[in-house]
Write a protein that binds this DNA or RNA. Structure first.
Lengths: 344, 344
DNA sequence: AATCATTTTCAAAGCGCTTTGGATGTCTGC
DNA sequence: GCAGACATCCAAAGCGCTTTGAAAATGATT
């Protein structure tokens, strides 16, 4: 059933039917009801391609997911982010289109998206420092918002970010207050902006208490369980092992916990751990009492909000740029405790 | 730059340029080269909506993700599946469009997709027993493939599945061979087809050795870490605790391990664990030696293959239905060992 | 040189919608 | 009873592409 069929069926012109369905005022309320009813009954929905062609709007938003052939890693937060954003999209009648692309072809993918007019805007994920996508998107004129920020970019753009720096500074402070002096950092890839900021928060908090950051107990990698495990194990086996760890993700933290327990130590008593918790649906941090003391910020909520910002931007491309900085909450769980005596 | 502009720029008709670009034979090679070059230089790409409208094909494939307001759970395998499928899609020029929808509106979402012509086909995720989506999709005539199978459906359809039953039967056998007699099952939601099949494999293997399945040591839930932890803890605390567990996902297994270690037991010595491993990129099961003994099957690979099957189906809707059953490999890791003497 | 077959190119229609610029009908006030 | 205002509807153009059917150019054959 298409518009033409529906309109002949109703004995009306396509114009009138279209207007009735799209809520234009110049149509009799009686007629509008008739049209709406018939559309409902015949399960009519406008062909989105035709509509898009006519209106010049795709009613779709793009997400390009770069896939490194080496790392072969999918960001585990992606699912939850999508769920959040998707909620906003469907509420506003937008589709979500994903493009998986080899990372070397990422720029080309954006150009492609732009010239093919497949989407009205894109969400930029996982910004790196000096991220080149931002100027590219500005240049080609594709509306976008960034989930996170990119240090070292002069241009302004819309973003929503967790205050990674203050979160990790607070977490570090919390550990220092408990008497920990040697705190290992198990961070994401150094090129990632969030990892950079987290390290900055951590280092500043240490320095503020007169402790020099020690590169020997700072690691930076793709945030897997294995990485958390290995890093913690190595640091614990070294001279002057840390009495506490700061981990950048729950999955890392699970690895850290494994290393601790493998060594016969007890998390929360012998070794403290604080992790960042993205509030992933399949990795809840305990139920009533959190297992890990954590800096918590829901990535799903971020997705929801970011989608709103982008849609606003699409509807009003010359509107003000939006910057939203969310504070992570520090949730005290069972993984932290006073530094053991002998280590103080 | 659109086709019209490009063609006047070249002094050719739109027809010729279109044909040149789409590889039709009736165009001079010399002209084709000229056209290709100009297209390249001016970064021309056909408007996908216009193209879709003209050809009647969306060159896009849909995935609808039902979101329960209660569970609020995103399947953690989703990211990796998407990555795999996305690879196939981009190789074949398809876009991937996701629709997040409240589960109660799922059927309506498919109808919607169908009548709006947004995609050429869909992938059905996480089939339940007697899954109603299959007959719906048949009815509305939207090409589809299923990731998994749906027991209790009379109609035939294309699917790709892991042999869950044989995988869990083998895993159970493996544990039985090691002398374990009481094996706890920590499974996914009972309504899910895969969970059903896994339980069937587990039960049959037990019965074949004259052991009656005991409902007291079988759990079924959304597969979170917490669920794995709680289930294992409860079972270990009960009379006649299991000496081994069979878990349906790595994330569950991490919880199981936590419960074991919390009790002061050692996984692989005191308690054995086998898990199903979907080979998620951020949850590798160890590096050289697997941590968990596991039945392993890459969900990413499944995504890749399933996408191929669907595209084939779209190109040839009357072709034969395809059924692919992948055998999971049993990888022996450090989490299994002979049953402790006193328990035998 | 004329004819026919083949290659190469083109004008125009059509995909299903929105939207512009009327046309028609109805109502008001004088 | 008629001009003007307003409400309601419509025909047709246009969005950017593909594709049909025909025309023009070229080459081969007599």
């Amino acid at each position: 059933m298409n518009l033409k069929e529906l309109s002949t069926l109703l004995g009306l012109s396509q114009t009138t039917v279209s207007r009735a369905l799209n809520g234009y005022p110049e149509v009799n309320e009686e007629t509008r009801r008739r049209v709406a009813l018939a559309a409902e009954q015949h399960n009519y929905r406008p062909n989105s391609r035709a509509k898009g062609l006519a209106t010049g709007r795709a009613m779709a938003i793009g997400h390009v997911i770069p896939m490194s052939t080496k790392h072969e890693m999918v960001n585990p937060i992606f699912g939850d982010f999508i769920a959040g954003a998707g909620e906003t999209y469907s509420r506003n009648g937008y589709d979500m289109v994903l493009t998986v692309v080899e990372d070397v072809n990422e720029a080309q993918a954006y150009r492609n998206i732009r010239s093919r007019h497949t989407v009205d805007g894109v969400v930029v994920h996982g910004p790196k420092m000096q991220d080149s996508r931002i100027s590219l998107l500005k240049e080609i004129g594709l509306p976008f918002v960034v989930h996170g920020r990119a240090s070292g970019i002069a241009q302004d753009y819309s973003w929503l970010d967790v205050n990674n720096k203050s979160a990790f500074a607070r977490a570090t402070d919390f550990l220092l207050d408990l008497g920990h002096q040697r705190i290992g950092l198990i961070n994401g890839l150094e090129g990632m902006d969030f990892a950079h900021r987290r390290r900055a928060g951590y280092e500043e908090a240490l320095i503020a208490r007169g402790i020099a950051p020690d590169p020997a107990i700072m690691r930076s990698e793709e945030m897997t369980e294995i990485f958390g495990y290995r890093s913690a194990r190595e640091m614990l086996a070294a001279d002057e092992p840390p009495t506490a760890f700061l981990a950048s993700s729950m999955i890392c933290a699970l690895g850290v916990r494994r290393a601790i327990e493998e060594r016969g130590l007890r998390m929360g008593r012998d070794i403290s751990v604080i992790t960042h918790d993205d509030a992933l649906s399949y990795l809840q941090n305990g139920s009533d009492v959190p297992i890990f003391t954590a800096t918590r910020s829901s990535v799903r909520e971020a997705g929801r909000r970011l989608a709103e910002i982008l849609i606003e931007r699409i509807n009003n491309p010359d509107g003000p740029l939006i910057h939203e900085l969310l504070e992570a909450e520090l949730m005290v769980g069972q993984s932290t405790g006073p530094a053991p005596r002998e280590a103080q």
